[in-house]
Amino acid sequence: MNSTHYLHQLEDEAIYILRETAAQFEKPALLFSGGKDSIVLVHLALKAFRPGKFPFPLVHIDTGHNFPEAIAFRDYLAYKIGEPLIVASVEDSIKKYNLKETQGRFPSRNALQTYALLDAIQENEFDACIGGARRDEEKARAKERIFSVRDDFGQWDPKLQRPELWDILNGKIEKGHNVRVFPISNWTELDVWNYIQQNNIELPNLYFSHDRECIVHQGKLVATSQFIQPLPSDVVVTEKVRYRTVGDMTCTAAVPSEAASIQDIIDDIIQTKISERGQTRLDDQLSEAAMEDRKKQGYF
């Protein structure tokens, strides 16, 4: 499949949005997790702003439950491109606000991330946060504008979204409000991988097939780690797996895969009949509107 032309269209759209964000806001930030979507964002920002510096820092909302490989890659990439990285810790917010951890065997700190994110926004006076969310990921995300205006509490009001005409972006907001910016809104999972291949973008190795010890939980493979210890009743296997998405170690499932190269992964995805989040996120399956509810609370 010759995908070059539409990948260029997607790239042009994303660079346009990044530059528009830089120009319209006083203090933007690029949310960077060390996952593939935000790595692509960084790559797009290099195209948008070099030889100049980025007009924004990289910001990571660190849940404390991340994969060490993702954290190492995050630090490596920030160092390599010479751009500042701010890390906001969910662990700190939990202590500061005495927050109750999610209960259960595979707890997600997704909802708690919002506290650290909103604190980071307030402390650094960020008026725009660029994120790698895509509309094809999830049905609440399918409704997002490119510039998504949030109130003082970071809340998304899906019934009162600003009109967004053509590609003209209106970033005017009240003081205290902020905007979430989604430059790769129109990319699908496959587009992201095709782009990574076309541009030879480096990724953390956990995206590729490797041996890993996992607990089999409701048909999903959850890696054993300092956060998830196997119980005597668990079925523990060591399998060739890769990660299709990279979230918390506690609630992201690995997929069995022999895919060792980007082309292998692309072939894998074309074959796969299960969605990205459906296959790998234990936290989205809590309810039909889990993502919508989190976004209304101020989530990405």
């Binding site: 049905k139 409704k143 899906p158 129109n186």
Partner: peptide, 25 residues
């Protein structure tokens, strides 16, 4: 498939634009 918000599913209507993606050869 397309009605993404809780209120939309409850009322059986579409309130805001939902974007969907597919491709052919």
């Amino acid at each position: 498939i397309t009605d993404g918000l809780r209120a939309e599913r409850e009322q059986g209507i579409t309130i805001d634009v939902a974007y969907k993606y597919f491709s052919t050869k």
